[in-house]
Design a protein around this nucleic acid. Structure first.
Lengths: 358, 358
DNA sequence: TTGAAAGCGCTAACAG
DNA sequence: CTGTTAGCGCTTTCAA
């Protein structure tokens, strides 16, 4: 029942060794489970450790072995359920391998991300799992990699990065979204994302390897198939803040030829767009159709239930963690989790023709 | 531009010292920003450090100073927006004080929580911020405290724990919920929570210092005021899993004298309850009224908009972090953030009389 | 199987 | 202001 634990400083191997009447080295071996120790010494040491309430100092351990027992995770917005779920996947997977997670939230700010990587590297984490906020500014990522630290990107990729990147495959689902909308008669399709980009969207614009590129690309392909022309001014980027989001919605809805359908890049955006639509007294799907990425439980409970693109976020987290563990020399299950998004049709997509208000 | 950084091992103070042509101690002082160093030496060392791509080894630093630069955070379910938001608050606050967050998810499992505390203690975190999953099993928390480690509890408290606990004050809001329901004519009020407890709820039962105790207590008081009797078999605990939640709903809704109102202890529960109600084809609020704790954006967008109890979750996280920082000897803003919940009336509460289906 | 001793990279006394 | 010398708690040669 370890009762000697209170009071002064923590017990060390030396303390345990003395109490057990063996050398420091033997005590360390017994405690650390390496080298060879006789049954005799083992039980003696273990008993003494128990008695003293000994807890190995992981810092010292990492210090001498050079092996760290924690991994750094860097995300833009932990408050977002998307990352919450991914983090859960990462956490579950690395825990089994004996690592803990050091989490840093960057607020989708590049400066903060650079600082976070720096910080984590100083903490000598075994590796980094990052959802990079920029697909072009990658110096800090390369630097980490140059220092022989394992780095895995997830959710979004970066241009020209040849290393491990774990992303969901949106190609097919995005095409389906485009077709669904086109088939329903929509030609004025809006897209709203919080992705940072300079200036408005243009065809062929470099959206990096962001999921947004795939998603917008899918809609473009669908338009191409249908021989229709997509008005790209309906693609609204940079809708990170509430204000920016409101402005984007205003642009989309308050014009002479408003968007008849809006695709929301994530659930946060969807929440905002839904609010804006509601505020304007528009009906879904009669006045405007909505498709959202990420299938969280509430999307089925709003009125009407949202047509969404479901994606295996938790599994993406696990795969990212596995990729990192592989780099760190761990054995992990060979079978890859399939990371494919799919369309879930519910009731928020209707005809592209505005039906007159009752 | 720090180009020598690739290749072998990381540069150390010794390397920098040699390159700068000064003693290790001076280099360390310059790099660490302590002691006194001449302008001369300072610039020499800094230049050398830059050149070598030196990054201080935080492990070694903590090792020698005995001061750790990370705090451990233990929560039950990071996937839950409630904790995501609180974590954000914690993270923002401790970051400013120079700490990083080591996060452990316990799945609301006591064994996992005990292990997590152990693990974090071994990592020698400066302190712990915990949302304990049990209000009675506290040996591991006490042990941590006995080792002179700062421990702050948040969201839930534990019985007999005299130390820092940061919780939202639900007393008034809970009373309001009770009155609201009673005034609307409800007498059969259900309460669903994922709180673990042995056996069904009974009056005066020890719910620890969990928020649930306050919330159930508020309803009880309201019943008392109204001189009405509350059927406590309508309080459903242990609804952690989807199955358990479904069973609780069945108990509440499929009986001869079903609950006419259901109070949901958190947004996860609310999602489940809403689903169960929907599945049964019941109407809100005509057939059954609903009140949920936690005011997340989606609660306003469902049909009908939910009457909820809003609580300052982010601020609770910040306050928990501040409490810890105080224990660690930091100066933090004196003014306490007010941590009070309040009722937000929307449209999910109606009359207690079932109106016949149209 | 054991023990003594040498570090890991850094900071903290203690003298100059 | 500067340098030298000890450690922090642990693992890891290297001999015994």
């Amino acid at each position: 029942m370890t009762k000697r634990e209170s009071g002064g400083r923590e017990a060390t191997v030396a303390d345990v060794a003395k109490a057990a009447g063996v050398s420091k080295a033997q005590a360390a071996r017994a405690l650390g489970g390496y080298g060879s120790v006789s049954e005799q010494v083992l039980s003696l040491v273990l008993a003494a450790a128990e008695e003293l309430g000994y807890r190995p100092n992981q810092l010292a351990r990492s210090m001498t072995t050079g092996r760290s027992t924690s991994v750094g995770v860097v995300v833009g917005d932990i408050e977002n359920a998307h990352f919450g779920l991914a983090l859960r996947g990462i956490s579950d997977e690395v825990r089994d391998a004996g690592y803990t997670v050091v989490l840093v939230n960057t607020d989708e700010d590049l400066g903060a991300e650079v600082g976070a990587v720096q910080e984590l590297l100083q903490q000598r984490v075994a590796g980094l799992i990052i959802a990079p906020c920029s697909s072009t500014e990658t110096a800090h990522l390369e630097s980490a990699h140059d220092h022989n630290r394992a780095v895995v990107l997830f959710d979004r990729g970066v241009r020209g990065w040849s290393l491990d990147t774990v992303r969901v495959d949106f190609a097919e689902a995005a095409l389906h979204v485009g077709r669904l909308l086109l088939d329903a008669g929509h030609r004025r399709v809006g897209y709203v994302s919080s992705l940072r980009a300079e200036g408005p969207y243009e065809l062929g614009m470099d959206l990096g390897l962001s999921p947004v590129a795939d998603r917008v690309g899918g809609i473009e392909r669908a338009f191409g198939e249908a021989g229709a022309e997509w008005d790209r001014s309906l693609v609204k980027l940079n809708a990170a803040s509430d204000d920016a989001l409101a402005a984007a919605c205003a642009d989309l809805l308050d014009r002479r030829d408003p968007a008849t359908a809006i695709v929301c890049s994530d659930s946060r955006i969807a929440l905002g767009v839904l609010g804006q639509i509601k505020r304007r007294g528009l009906r879904i799907p009669e006045d405007v159709s909505v498709v959202a990425y990420d299938d969280f439980p509430w999307t089925e409970l709003v009125d009407p239930p949202l047509t969404v693109v479901s994606q295996p976020v938790y599994d993406m987290g696990r795969e990212a963690a596995r990729a990192l563990l592989r780099r760190l020399g761990h054995r992990v299950p060979a079978e890859q989790l399939p990371l494919k998004a799919h369309l879930v049709e519910r009731a928020s997509v209707g005809s592209g023709e505005r039906t007159p208000t009752a």
